[in-house]
Write a protein that binds this DNA or RNA. Structure first.
Length: 477
RNA sequence: CGGGGCGUAGCGCAGCCCGGUUAGCGCGUCUGCUUUGGGAGCAGAAGGUCGGAGGUUCAAAUCCUCUCGCCCCGACCA
C-alpha cells in the first residue's frame, strides 16, 4: 500500500495483481486458487450487481435461489455438459462422517438442478415463459487461477429461462446479450463486442453461445459475459415438458446467461493506469473524496466547517467520502485515493476558503491537467456534471483504444502479426481446422463472430474458401 | 499435470554457497514531540517455533532426506 506499483507497461500481469492487493479489492485465501473479496472490492461488485439486477427486473426476470449441491447423476444427464464439466468438478464424497451413496457435486453452474425443478413446475403453455435469475457462488477446479479473472470459486448471476418456442428462446438469448452490452458500455464504460461463439468455444450443452468480448489494456481479450441458447437439450435431459394449446406434449426451449466477478477484473484492466485503479463513476464505491488541508487547529475547524457545507450541498445522490484521518499528509492521501481509483477528488485548504473555491482533481486526467479551481457555490452542479464527463471520457477513451487496436488483415501473414498485437477481424469459413491453425500459430483464438456483419461474403483468411462471416481473433485471458 | 522460483517479524527482503555468540535490514505498527497544498522528520519501543518432520554434527536458518504450501511460465480453461 505504501510503495509505488509496478508500471503497467513494464509488467502488465504484475501490475494487475499489485493494483488489486494494494487497492484492497481482494487478497489470496489460504486455499489455492481462492480469493477473499475485501470490502472495497465487494462494494464495487455490489454496484455491478445493482446495475445488472435492475436491468434483469426491467426485462421481466425474478430472483430465486437453488442449492449449492447437485447430485452427480444430474450432471451426467446431458452428454456434452458432463464432457465439458467433468474435469473441473469438485465432488463431495463424504458427509456426516460417512461415505455418501451418491456423490454430490458443488455446482459449476446450475442448468441441471434448475432444469430438474422446471420439469416439476412447468405443466402448461400458460406457465411459460419462466424467467428466473439467481445470484450465487459456483466452483470450478481450475488449474491456473488469477484474481477475479479465474478463481476456483467465484460469484456470479446465472439466468435460466424456459420458453414455448425456439424463436422465443433465441429472442431471450439475444435480449440478455444486449442487457450485458448495455451494462458494460453504459455502467462499466467498456465498449464490448457482442457476438456468437464458434462451435469449439461454445458452452457444453448449448446449441449456440453468445458473448461480449472486451479489450483489456494489454490488448488481450476478456470474455465478460455469456448468453446461451440451450435449445431443447436440457429440456430433453430433464424432461421439461408442457402441454400446448392443442393438448400435445412439447419440450421447452431453454436459455442460460451469466456475468461473474470477472467483470471486476475487466474494469480494472480496461481503465487502470500506472497510478492504479481508475473506476467509472457509475460503479465506483466512492465517487468523490474530499481531502482537507490545514496546518493549525483554527484552520482545521474552518476547513471542516466548509466541508460540512459541501457535504450538504452535494446531498445524498453522490457517494461521497471525507478523509478525516489526521495521521496522513494530504499528499499521501492523494496517492492513496488515486490508487483506489476514486473518480473525483476535492481538495480544500485555507487558501481556497479565502477565495471561496476548491480544487477539483479528476482521476481520469492525472497530474495538473486534471486539476481545476472551481467556486464553492457551483459545486452542486459542477460535481455531478464532472462525474458524467469522466464516465463519458472513460468510455470514449476505451472505444478509441479498442478501435486503434483492431486491424483488418487481408492475408494470413498480416493476420499473424495483427493477432499478436490486438484484435484481428477477418473472414472465416467456419472450419475448426482453420481456427486451430490460427491458434497454433499465434495463440489467438476465435473470440466471437460479431453480430454486426458486413453482409456480403468473402474468402477465409486461412484456407481461402468462401466465407460468410467475419470473426474476431485475439489472445484471450 | 510438466518447467522454473520462493517459504526467515504484519509486508518486502538479506543471511544459506563456505554450519559457530543474544538471526539482521527497509517499510509498516505503538509512544512522544514537531509536522500537514503531491507518499513528513526526530527520538524511543514492541514484534521471530527461520513453512513442517526426520537426519548428520559438539553445534543447523545454513548441509542431507522427505513433506506441505504459494507464486510465475506452459498445457488446460463453459
Amino acid at each position: 500500500m505504501r510503495d509505488k506499483i509496478t508500471p503497467r507497461s513494464e509488467d502488465y500481469s504484475e501490475w494487475y495483481t499489485e493494483v488489486i492487493r494494494k487497492a484492497e479489492l481482494a487478497d489470496y485465501a489460504p486455499v489455492r486458487g481462492c480469493m477473499v473479496i475485501r470490502p472495497y472490492g465487494y462494494e464495487l461488485w455490489e454496484n455491478v450487481k445493482a446495475g445488472l439486477d435492475r436491468r434483469f427486473k426491467e426485462t421481466g426476470h425474478e430472483n430465486a435461489y437453488f442449492p449449492l449441491f447437485v447430485p452427480m447423476s444430474f450432471i451426467e444427464k446431458e452428454a456434452q455438459h458432463v464432457e465439458g464439466f467433468a474435469p473441473e468438478l469438485a465432488v463431495v464424497t463424504h458427509g456426516g462422517g460417512k461415505k455418501l451413496e451418491d456423490p454430490l457435486v458443488v455446482r459449476p453452474t446450475s442448468e441441471t438442478v434448475i432444469g430438474y425443478m422446471y420439469s416439476q413446475w412447468i405443466q402448461s403453455y400458460r406457465d411459460l415463459p419462466v424467467l428466473i435469475n439467481q445470484w450465487a457462488n459456483v466452483v470450478r477446479w481450475e488449474l491456473r487461477t488469477r484474481l477475479f479473472l479465474r478463481t476456483m470459486e467465484f460469484l456470479w448471476q446465472e439466468g435460466h429461462t424456459a420458453h414455448a418456442t425456439a424463436e422465443e428462446a433465441q429472442e431471450e438469448t439475444l435480449r440478455m446479450l444486449d442487457v450485458y452490452t448495455d451494462f458494460a458500455v453504459n455502467d462499466a464504460a467498456i465498449p464490448v463486442i457482442p457476438g456468437r461463439k464458434s462451435d469449439s468455444e461454445k458452452f457444453p450443452g448449448a446449441n449456440a453461445s453468445y458473448s461480449i468480448e472486451a479489450m483489456m489494456g494489454d490488448r488481450r481479450a476478456l470474455q465478460s459475459g455469456t448468453s446461451h441458447n440451450l435449445g431443447q437439450n436440457f429440456a430433453k435431459a430433464f424432461d421439461i415438458q408442457y402441454q400446448d394449446g392443442n393438448g400435445a406434449q412439447q419440450y421447452c426451449w431453454t436459455t442460460s446467461w451469466g456475468v461473474s466477478t470477472r467483470m471486476v477484473g475487466a474494469i480494472i484492466m480496461a481503465h487502470g493506469d500506472d497510478q492504479g485503479l481508475v473506476l467509472p463513476p457509475r460503479l465506483a464505491p466512492t465517487q468523490v473524496v474530499i481531502v482537507p488541508i490545514y496546518r493549525k487547529d483554527a484552520e482545521q475547524s474552518t476547513v471542516m466547517e466548509a466541508i460540512e457545507k459541501i457535504e450538504a450541498m452535494l446531498g445524498q445522490n453522490i457517494r461521497l467520502k471525507v478523509d478525516r484521518r489526521d495521521e496522513y499528509s494530504p499528499g499521501w492521501k492523494f496517492n492513496e485515493w488515486e490508487l483506489k481509483g476514486v473518480p473525483l477528488r476535492i481538495e480544500i485548504g485555507p487558501r481556497d476558503i479565502a477565495k471561496d473555491q476548491v480544487v477539483l482533481a479528476r482521476r481520469d486526467m492525472p497530474g495538473r491537467d486534471g486539476k481545476s479551481f472551481v467556486p464553492l457555490a457551483g459545486l452542486a452542479d459542477i460535481v455531478p456534471d464532472t462525474l458524467t464527463n469522466i464516465q463519458d471520457n472513460l468510455l470514449g477513451r476505451a472505444i478509441e483504444f479498442r478501435d486503434t487496436n483492431i486491424s483488418e488483415p487481408s492475408d494470413y501473414n498480416s493476420l499473424r502479426a495483427a493477432a499478436a498485437q490486438g484484435f484481428a477481424r477477418a473472414w472465416w469459413c467456419g472450419e475448426v481446422a482453420c481456427e486451430d491453425k490460427i491458434k497454433d500459430d499465434t495463440k489467438a483464438t476465435t473470440r466471437c463472430i460479431p453480430l454486426d456483419q458486413p453482409g456480403e461474403g468473402g474468402n477465409c483468411i486461412v484456407c481461402g474458401k468462401s466465407a460468410e462471416e467475419i470473426a474476431i481473433f485475439a489472445r484471450a485471458y
